[in-house]
Design a protein around this nucleic acid. Structure first.
Lengths: 162, 162
DNA sequence: CCCAGAGAGTTGTCACGTCAACTCTAGATT
DNA sequence: AATCTAGAGTTGACGTGACAACTCTCTGGG
């Protein structure tokens, strides 16, 4: 008969622990964001990205690119955040297409405090928990992984790095 | 005026890269699961847990404990999976409460192949990407983090360390 | 001019996940 | 025994995320 698994129990456990750590960390930070700033992780991401644009309006496509989110996801998220009064869409054409996205005053306020508070939480729950060695190893792996996985997802062909 | 952030740009970037790596990896694996086995990550988790119970029926509370999921989340997930024919609830009392959860034949089949295939994907996309040093550092950090964060979540009071 | 097709955004649908409210049972209290 | 209550499970509402279908505009070719 065929094998019923392709990883050793020890490997499964490693994987499981790693996933669990991620989930716990993410959950803790998300709860902090909700508790302290009354915004979600998704809202935070959008707020930060627009904040970094420093007043310049962004297009949906830019947000999508920068966040690495599906365009429809961005659109849905903007609809919700527009309802909450964090962002506004300003029209370009005579029609409804081609919208520029900007923060409202309330959005700017929320972004500012959230960046401060959430940054502190990240330090407490993540950065402070790392030894210098762990930090540098994890950083290196992350960069490696992003490179490798991006190659997979976006472009399969353009491997010009000869 | 108050500071507008509490992390250095370099620290933000570290955090961002780390999160991005996780997200890309998770996404890749989830897509693989969908493509190769036609099941979601959530379904996989439930199937595996029930599979490990080796035929014995589990209660919702046990699943909730073991997966570290909210009970309502388990319940919703079971409803969906019952519809797909992967699990069945068997009643204990005269009423509808106290259900035992078991895999159907189809559930067992799906679990078996998914464990094999997904295990392979984990190896390819994660384990194989790690140098021995990275593996041991990440493993250590994960265990550390799970311990620390579990203490936070469950019991807030038992802080014997003066 | 008209039409085909590429790009940008939106919308619908469905699965996932969280929180709060609800139901039913069973054990404890009186 | 009547009731109160803690625990187990379910349900509903809503935000989130992925995917496909759709609309509208613009542009190039006939």
């Amino acid at each position: 008969m065929t094998e019923t698994r392709s990883l050793e129990p020890e490997e499964w456990e490693f994987w499981d622990t790693w996933m669990r750590a991620q989930r716990l960390l993410t959950r803790e930070l998300e709860r902090g964001l909700q508790r302290d700033c009354d915004i979600s992780k998704a809202e935070f991401s959008v707020l930060v990205t627009l904040w970094q644009a420093a007043g310049r309006e962004m297009r949906v496509g830019e947000l999508s690119e920068s966040l690495d989110w599906d365009k429809s996801r961005v659109s849905h998220q903007l609809t919700r955040m527009e309802k909450r009064g964090f962002v506004k869409r300003t029209q370009y054409g005579a029609d409804g297409r081609r919208a520029g996205i900007g923060l409202t005053a309330e959005g700017r306020r929320a972004a500012q405090t959230a960046i401060f508070v959430h940054g502190g939480n990240i330090r407490r729950h993540f950065l402070d928990s790392l030894t210098p060695e762990q930090a540098s190893v994890i950083r290196a792996w992350s960069e490696q992984a992003v490179d490798r996985l991006n190659r997979h997802g976006s472009n399969a062909a353009s491997d010009g790095a000869s």
